[in-house]
Design a protein around this nucleic acid. Structure first.
Lengths: 218, 218
DNA sequence: TTTTTATCGATAAAATTTTATCAAATCATA
DNA sequence: TATGATTTGATAAAATTTTATCGATAAAAA
């Protein structure tokens, strides 16, 4: 996924903003616009215009033009390429319960270059069935299947208590990246990329911002 | 939620790490340990020890002791208080489909001081029912109900196309914080706290990290 | 009791990220 | 065609965040 030449020296913050730019630009394109300025993007996305220009400089192959700004179509293509959305990567999902089902059903992943090819669960009632088109296998098969399917990305959507075990199984099958939706701390070697989808952290940040806003206005 | 005296001068990054500390400390407490050093936390959580000490200094009421470290129980209490987990805030959920259902069923929120009191959807088949114990109302009622329930936090779990409308309804009812799970850019006044749960951004960061790891090892 | 050792907390340094400034470029307009 | 307005991209400054250093301190060991 993505472009090798671009992996270095791009901050996590910049990478994290890319999908927002992409969504925004697609909106604008749909609205029939052809070019856009960093100023306009910054204003709408509540960012600093210089930051936007720096971010775009990282990925864009075509320079912006004074007085006009950037070609929207070019930017979209560049961000898609940068994020690796133009080629699809397979992933497996551990946990076919509530959240797992929701994730499997979230069609959007296809747009993000992610294709969930298999799900795993312990529940015998689920094994052998399909959730949103994704076949569910026995959790005992994780390592074996991951290896067979040659999958690098595992998504964990199991209860806290089962998360570490799921991660270990994925890794022992050869997975190299774990997207962890369980609110559990995973202990994994540094050679594995881990992204914790930490709802608690998000909520904490939102709460603090809310508290700040309420505090400041009186 | 949280403590007013502590809202200023605490970076988003620090706030975001708090839940991870909390989870980790609870683990340790459960394992029967009484004290812990910043060094140990840093090692396990892959952080810098000085950073851990600085983070803890923000919230802790009790100083650490040389040679021993911090009292785990004290830290847990302090973080709980800091994050506002010791008092519960009501929230409403817009969207009772796959993701909405998963969120409603995610019992963990209660631990994070969040209580979902109502859900909304357009689907007549869902209205009047309950999803995981949360009653579902007509989406047309959002503003009215939010005002009546005096709710400040709204969670958006609807398809992209409906997200802005949902946000507007929440805000017009008096909500001041929006937790947005739709991958859509919301246009809202600065007086509203918004946290985008941007799956695409997370995936992008994970993918880049994976690419980096794979690239570096050959 | 004295010495050793581990850890804190304060301060300083380094690194990173964000924001400001400004000359150069180019489009639109007169 | 010349002028003015607007935006870029480069460079610099500011702000923030992370990491390093080190004296002080308290527990453990000698």
């Amino acid at each position: 996924m993505g472009n090798n030449k671009e992996i270095a020296n791009v901050s996590k913050a910049t990478i994290g903003r890319m999908p927002a730019y992409l969504r925004y630009l697609k909106e604008k394109e749909l609205a029939g616009e052809r070019t856009i300025s960093s100023t306009a993007i910054a204003e709408d996305l509540r960012l600093n215009a210089v930051q936007v220009r720096k971010d775009l400089a990282v990925i864009s192959t075509v320079a912006g033009k004074p007085k006009l700004g950037f070609e929207i179509a070019d930017l979209i293509a560049d961000i898609n390429r940068f994020l690796g959305y133009d080629n699809v990567t397979d992933a497996v999902l551990v946990g076919a319960g509530g959240l797992g089902r929701a994730l499997a059903g979230y069609g959007g992943f296809r747009n993000y270059g992610l294709n969930i090819v298999a799900a795993f669960d312990k529940d015998p009632d689920l094994i052998g069935k399909k959730i949103n088109g994704v076949p569910v296998f026995d959790a005992g098969e994780i390592a074996h299947m991951v290896r067979r399917l040659n999958v690098l990305i595992g998504i964990i959507a199991v209860p806290k208590a089962a998360a570490q075990q799921a991660a270990d199984a994925l890794v022992s099958g050869g997975a190299r990246a774990i997207w962890n939706f369980a609110s559990a701390h995973l202990n994994l070697p540094d050679s594995i990329a881990v992204k914790n989808e930490d709802m608690a952290a998000s909520l904490a940040i939102l709460s603090k911002r809310l508290a700040e806003i309420l505090y400041n206005e009186k």
